[in-house]
Amino acid sequence: MRVLHIVTGLASGGAERQLLLTVRNLPAHQHCEVLTLTNPGAVAGALRADGVPVHDLAMRGNRDVGALPRLVRLIRAGRYDLVHTHLYRAGLYGRLAARLAGVRAVVATEHSLHPGVIEGRPVTPGVKGLYLAAERLGRTTVAVSRQVEGTLHAWGVPPARVELIPNGIDAARYAWPAGERAAIRRRVRDGLGLSQGSWVIGAVGRLVPGKRFDVLLDALRELEGPRLVLVGAGPERAALERRAERLGVRARVLFTGERDDVPELLAAVDVLAAPSTEETFGLGVLEGLAAGLPVRHSACPALDELPPAAAPGARRIPSDPAAYASALRELYDLRAAAVRSPVPAPAVARYDVARAAAELGALYDRLVPRPASAPTGAAPGA
Rank of each mutant, 00 (worst) to 15 (best):
R17A: 14
L21N: 10
T22N: 05
N25V: 12
E33T: 10
E33C: 08
L37Q: 00
L37R: 00
P40N: 05
P69G: 01
P69D: 09
P69V: 06
R76S: 05
R76C: 07
Y80K: 05
L82R: 05
L87W: 08
Y93C: 09
L96Q: 14
A98H: 09
A98S: 10
V106P: 07
S112V: 09
I118F: 02
T124E: 04
G129P: 00
Y131Q: 05
E135S: 14
L137A: 07
L137S: 06
V144F: 05
Q147K: 15
G150F: 14
T151M: 00
L164N: 09
L164W: 13
A171T: 00
A171L: 04
A175V: 05
L192N: 13
Q196T: 03
I201F: 06
A203M: 13
R212M: 08
D214C: 09
L216V: 11
E222N: 09
E224K: 10
A233N: 09
G234S: 01
P235E: 12
A239H: 12
L240C: 00
E241I: 03
R243W: 03
A244V: 00
D260S: 15
A267D: 03
V285K: 03
V285P: 04
A290V: 02
A291N: 04
C300W: 04
P301I: 08
L303K: 10
P321E: 06
A327Q: 00
R329D: 15
D333Q: 13
A336S: 14
R340P: 01
P346W: 07
A349H: 07
V353N: 02
R355T: 15
L360S: 02
L360N: 04
L360R: 14
A362W: 11
L367F: 00
T376Q: 15
